[in-house]
Design a protein around this nucleic acid. Structure first.
Length: 297
DNA sequence: TTCATTGTGTAGGGTTTCAG
DNA sequence: CTGAAACCCTACACAATGAA
């Protein structure tokens, strides 16, 4: 049977062997000498090996006791080091943040290195999921969510204007079927995200082309990030949330065939933090940094 | 059914005391 | 100073019971 020895007994043995005295060991461990003596006896019984020879008013290690002591010292050092590491990690300020995959991939992750450079002591752990936020059940410090700004139990900070705009690859616009008026979208493949099925409808309505173009037609992807990637590849025209494709527009991977945009108003992205906890300084730093990023954009 | 609470027996670990 | 015996306290596992 592969069992660990009684660890308290090992601890007592280590202290006694180091001091070469039961009394001093007991002092260190804040117990009586009787307790240490008993622990060592327990250990010897468990191992079936004599570790100490008891002399008059002193103890000394047996041969096997010396070997065991060396091994125990190393093991305790490993344990001590592991504990130190763990505590260092705890002391480092961690922020667990939840965000949508698309938001994380297209916006947050590309900017996070800037945050780490500015605040090396704060470690941001990102989690992606669509689940509703419940700060009492889930171990997270904050979440970035899409909604109308009303989440019971959460403090909310509005992050950005969510503006819908059609995007497509420049090559598609040059070589594909003409795309002068919104009604021409009827001859193009519309790219959708299943998480945001109504975006094309909103935009076509605003553009006055809801009659001519079927807002449901086209191809649907699981996330907006996938539909944007499809647009970059020239597979069709995606309806994008503008701040998530800003870099692609700047770099020329995507272009806007129409100037018309639809602002979703208060239905946009918010930073949620638990209302029942006081804001930590790291969270405050992160919140201010987020807002700064959006202001700069 | 499921979960929380309460009661009970047991093992482990502590102290005190005393002999060597 | 150590070891052993007697004794005490506490935590834990497990079962029984009550509440949702």
């Amino acid at each position: 049977m592969d069992r660990l020895p009684p660890l308290n007994a090992v601890r007592a043995f280590e202290a006694a062997a180091r001091h070469m005295s039961i009394t001093l060991a007991a002092d260190e461990l804040h117990v009586t000498p009787g307790a240490v003596s008993r622990q060592i006896k327990t250990l010897e019984d468990a191992l079936g090996v004599q570790l100490f020879t008891r002399g008059h008013r002193q103890v000394s290690l047996t041969r096997q006791g010396q070997d065991y002591y060396r091994a125990v010292t190393r093991a305790i050092e490993v344990l001590r080091e592991a504990t130190r590491k763990l505590q260092r990690r705890r002391q480092r300020k961690q922020l667990k943040i939840r965000a949508y995959t698309t938001f994380a991939m297209r916006w947050l992750i590309p900017r996070l290195s800037g945050f780490h450079a500015a605040h090396p002591d704060i470690e941001v752990l990102l989690k992606a999921s669509l689940e509703p936020v419940d700060f009492r059940k889930e171990d997270i410090d904050g979440a970035i969510r899409l909604g109308d700004g009303h989440w019971p139990g959460s403090h909310t900070v509005r992050l950005v204007d969510n503006v819908l705009v059609p995007v497509a690859s420049p090559s598609l616009l040059k070589a594909g079927p003409k795309l002068k008026r919104p009604a021409d979208l009827a001859h193009h493949t519309l790219l959708h995200s299943s998480a945001r099925p109504d975006d094309w409808g909103h935009w076509l309505e605003a553009a006055g082309a809801a009659e001519q173009v079927d807002a449901r037609a086209g191809m649907t992807y699981e996330s907006s990030a996938m539909s944007y990637a499809a647009a970059v590849e020239g597979q069709g025209v995606a309806i994008a949330q503008r701040f998530l494709v800003e870099r692609d527009l700047q770099d020329g991977r995507l272009a806007m065939p129409f100037k018309r945009t639809v602002n979703m108003g208060d239905y946009t992205y918010y930073l949620l933090t638990p209302a029942h906890r006081e804001e930590t300084t790291s969270m405050r730093t992160f919140r201010l940094w987020l807002l700064e990023q959006f202001k700069a954009a």
